[in-house]
Amino acid sequence: MAESIATYIALPGTTAEAMQHWHDVFGGELQILRYGDNPMPGMPFDPDPQAVAHATLVTDAGIIAGADAMPDGHDYAVQGTAYSLLYTTDTPDQARTYLQRLVEGGGREAMPFARAPWGGWYGQVFDRFGVMWAFSCAGE
Rank of each mutant, 00 (worst) to 15 (best):
D127Q: 07
L99I: 15
A77G: 03
P39Q: 08
P39D: 03
L33E: 10
G123C: 05
D68A: 06
A16D: 15
F126H: 15
P71H: 11
A65C: 13
V58H: 05
P117H: 12
S136C: 06
Y35F: 15
G73N: 09
A67K: 03
G36A: 05
A134R: 13
S84L: 09
P112E: 14
P44Q: 02
S136A: 14
C137V: 05
D75Y: 02
F26Y: 10
L11C: 09
G13Y: 10
D60N: 12
F113I: 11
E140A: 11
G139W: 09
A114H: 08
D127R: 06
A61D: 07
L99G: 07
A110D: 13
Q20R: 15
E104S: 10
L99S: 04
P12M: 06
L85C: 10
I63M: 14
G27I: 11
L85V: 15
M43C: 01
R34L: 05
P41T: 04
D68Q: 07
S84P: 00
D37I: 07
Q94N: 03
P49Q: 06
T89V: 12
G73E: 11
Y76Q: 08
G36K: 11
Y8F: 13
A65H: 12
Q94T: 14
H21D: 14
M43G: 00
T91M: 04
